[in-house]
Design a protein around this nucleic acid. Structure first.
Ligand SMILES: NC(=O)c1ccc[n+]([C@@H]2O[C@H](COP(=O)([O-])OP(=O)(O)OC[C@H]3O[C@@H](n4cnc5c(N)ncnc54)[C@H](O)[C@@H]3O)[C@@H](O)[C@H]2O)c1
Ligand SMILES: NC(=O)c1ccc[n+]([C@@H]2O[C@H](COP(=O)([O-])OP(=O)(O)OC[C@H]3O[C@@H](n4cnc5c(N)ncnc54)[C@H](O)[C@@H]3O)[C@@H](O)[C@H]2O)c1
Lengths: 241, 241
DNA sequence: ACGCCCTTGTGAACATTTGCACAAAGTCGC
DNA sequence: GCGACTTTGTGCAAATGTTCACAAGGGCGT
């Protein structure tokens, strides 16, 4: 690491890979709280979160030294420290754009709210959809975006069709949104400094398919299956349907 | 990994990071096909897929040498080669477990089918839900699982509540499912060799929140913003750009 | 048929992430 | 109080992933 002179404790610059795992630790801690557990070792927490204990300790070391050697971590204190590192000490207002099937499901799903986010606005460009009520909110037109960002909304969710995703992203960025969660199955290009994360089921399934294919191929190990014959292998799978 | 001596051309062992990007390339190629584009350079495809061209070329090099120097890649041929590498030369049957809000939405969402997967069964443990019709299928009890795997189903989707996720995973693994896509916000433990991927919106939002927080903090750079005052920061966001 | 020009495929440098192993540090029983 | 025992936090090495930069290769115009 560069010799970052002062650098208070360790508050700045947690590696991306570690940041991506923090929410999992948070969730595991919540589960333990619900079970009435007050203290955990890195080993126990690691199992609950599905990682190795060494990785867990290394990750936590980036946010400071909150464990007690020989004992473990205090569940509620660690929960607080991770929350703070992630910026969840206050709720973040979120806007969802695109009120189709997915947008409605997300708007009504309580999973956000419990985790430090609150859906404060629902937008759609279709005049037919604008004005409809979804849960506690009324769908608004795209033109209100600047007003939303003006009042502090910085996270946007794209739930519009793929071909509209880039337009929506442009509108969000133009209005000052700095972080985007994209459910549309397409990449969006944004300026430097704007964060985009994509959630795509088809991609996830395709990645699983790759691993399944490998398993099938290695199951027929004995046969070198080199060259020509290889292509037939996938068919094998009993798949009677 | 053991040093796999012979290793034909490049068919085996594509790095995980590359595999995770292949679906994105596939999607980008589909978009180009729809636009009537027959040939692309790595640079153009990289922009469409949202990666750097060097990364794209390196990734593709793991599946073979399918480009033409000075020209680029033939869209339909590259599409085929990526499909083949991912194991998408045939459809994969999928079972969804948990027919609540999310399960129903997934079952009726066409996004799977277009991409090489077909939902062949819907399961739930609740007798009230079993027998209901969702789209073209009737919800079946958990007891049919072994029959499904017997006929070739190897990919399962968990759309049950978090506290049931481990039980469902155990049932899936016990029946012979080898790959699981888990939508419940909890980690599941499975034996070696079983693949699990998790999709969790709250985690994604929390990761975005971390980056937003950093942006806010660096905006108030001069001020150390240590301790107490920090919590007010988020409201600020002048985000004039 | 030749050479120019363009883009691929890849070796090598660099960066990040993971895993190991253990000294440091604290608790708890006695 | 003190020593034995437990578990953290971390230095280091290995593995994995990314970026750079360019030689090799192939088409296309002439
Ligand atoms: N339905 C699912 O289960 C599901 C699951 C995963 C991903 N997705 C993806 O999510 C996206 C939305 O899916 P859906 O089923 O809700 O689609 P949908 O067609 O039901 O809804 C899309 C909504 O977006 C609005 N919209 C279109 N263009 C817009 C624009 N430029 N600005 C603002 N709003 C616009 C439309 O008016 C419509 O209300 C799609 O990209 C889809 O692939 C859907
Ligand atoms: N609703 C959403 O928009 C959404 C979005 C993201 C993630 N999720 C997550 O997806 C999961 C399901 O959400 P939901 O809203 O559909 O919940 P839900 O309560 O509507 O549905 C859950 C279904 O699972 C069934 N089930 C429960 N235990 C089971 C078991 N052991 N075996 C088989 N089936 C069982 C129930 O009978 C019920 O039909 C949850 O973990 C939720 O956090 C939901």
């Amino acid at each position: 690491m560069p010799p970052v002179s002062v650098e208070s404790a360790a508050e700045r610059g947690i590696p991306d890979a570690a940041v991506a795992r923090l929410p999992g630790y948070l969730r595991a801690l919540d589960t333990m709280t619900a079970s009435g557990i007050a203290s955990v070792s890195s080993e126990e927490l690691a199992v609950e979160a599905g990682v190795s204990s060494a990785k867990l300790r290394k990750d936590l070391s980036h946010l400071g030294s909150y464990g007690v050697r020989g004992v473990g971590y205090d569940v509620s204190h660690l929960r607080y420290e991770i929350s703070r590192a992630l910026g969840l000490t206050h709720d973040w207002p979120v806007v969802i754009v695109g009120m189709g099937n997915l947008g409605r499901a997300l708007a009504q799903y309580g999973g956000f709210e419990q985790q430090g986010f609150s859906v404060v606005a629902l937008l759609d460009h279709d005049p037919e959809v604008v004005g409809q009520r979804v849960g506690d909110l009324v769908v608004q037109p795209m033109t209100v975006l600047p007003a939303l960002t003006g009042s502090g909304v910085v996270i946007g969710v794209i739930a519009a069709p793929a071909q509209a995703a880039q337009d929506v992203a442009d509108a969000l960025v133009g209005a000052g949104i700095g972080s985007i969660l994209n459910f549309a199955p397409s990449a969006v290009n944004v300026p430097d400094g704007v964060q985009v994360r994509r959630v795509d089921l088809a991609s996830e399934l395709q990645i699983l398919a790759y691993h399944e294919q490998r398993r099938v191929e290695s199951a027929e190990s004995g046969a070198p299956a080199d060259g020509t014959a290889a292509s037939a292998s996938a068919r094998t799978v009993g798949v009677a349907r």
